[in-house]
Structures are given as structure tokens and as C-alpha cells.
């Protein structure tokens, strides 16, 4: 178990922090361009497709595919260093963006509430697997994405 004083890094940009209320509600939202309708991520000031400045946090389809999955054996933050190996997933959302996500197999992160198979260590998502993404608060009350294998 992690030392209760150690917390994951909570620092976010002003834009990144805007995900927090949606994480509290368990709603998956990403910035969507009001002009070209594209979803964009990481959080940004203007649309990466059409440069419109009108971006709005909108509900985003949660499904995607794992591009790659690795186990981290080294971390620059004590919170993670105490829980190695830590699973890191890169997920290509069907809606477009590529998102880094925690694995739902980690303690302290909850499943999305969707119907999913029972998770064991061996069932962590691998590349090519279909996953569903959720937005949650981590132990530092900061917004994070969590990926869970689809049944």
C-alpha cells in the first residue's frame, strides 16, 4: 500500500484542471470544437484541426483501442515508485485523440460502472485490445483517465 502521505502529482494547467468537476461526476468529457466538431486532447487553447478558439467540454464516446501497454519499473514520483510496476496504457479513442490512461487493475481506481469482465493481474489490457475509458479522481483528487478492457 502507498504511504498515505504520498500522493500522485496533482499539478495541472488551468485547462487540465477543468476536467475535475466532470471527473467528480464520473462523466467522460473532452474538449470538442464548436466549429469543426472534432474532439481534441491534450487540453488546448485552440482547436488543433481548424484553430477555432471555441472549444467546449462535451461528452465523448468512451471506446477505444490500446496502442501499447507497458509496465513502468521506474517513477520520478514516490507515490508511483512505491507501487511499481505501474501499468501505463496509450489508447486511441474512436473519437480521435490519443490518451494516456491508468489501468483499471490498479488499486484505488474504480471500474467505470460499465459491464466488464472480472479483472485479474493477467487480464490487464494489451495492445490491440478494445477498452472503455472513464474519467475519475485519483487519490490527490486530480482528474485522470482509466482504461478498462471491454468484455
Amino acid at each position: 500500500m502507498a504511504d498515505s502521505k504520498q500522493m500522485p502529482p496533482a499539478k495541472r494547467t488551468n485547462l487540465g484542471a477543468q476536467l475535475k468537476p466532470f471527473a467528480e461526476q464520473g462523466e467522460l468529457r473532452l474538449q470538442q470544437c464548436l466549429s469543426c466538431q472534432q474532439f481534441v486532447y491534450p487540453p488546448r487553447e485552440v482547436c488543433g484541426h481548424c484553430l477555432s478558439g471555441e472549444l467546449s467540454w462535451e461528452a465523448c464516446p468512451a471506446e477505444g483501442q490500446v496502442l501499447a501497454r507497458v509496465d513502468l519499473h521506474n517513477s520520478f514520483e514516490p507515490f508511483y515508485a512505491e507501487q511499481l510496476p505501474w501499468v501505463l496504457l496509450s489508447v486511441k479513442l474512436d473519437a480521435g485523440p490519443v490518451v494516456y490512461a491508468h489501468s483499471s487493475s490498479h488499486a484505488g481506481l474504480e471500474d467505470s460502472g460499465l459491464e466488464v469482465e472480472a479483472l485479474e493481474i493477467e487480464s490487464k489490457a494489451n495492445s490491440g485490445d478494445r477498452v472503455t475509458l472513464s474519467l475519475q479522481l485519483d487519490e490527490a483528487e486530480a482528474p485522470v483517465f482509466v482504461a478498462q478492457p471491454l468484455k
Partner: peptide, 17 residues
């Protein structure tokens, strides 16, 4: 800004990750 929001919080592995 992108690493702060979208990569560092996910295990803090830095460029190795």
C-alpha cells in the same frame, strides 16, 4: 503543458515511459 496534463500524472515515468 501537455506533459503536465496528459502524461506525467500517469505513472510519472518521464521520457522513459
Amino acid at each position: 503543458t501537455f506533459t503536465r496534463d496528459a502524461s506525467y500524472p500517469y505513472g510519472a515515468g518521464g521520457p522513459n515511459a
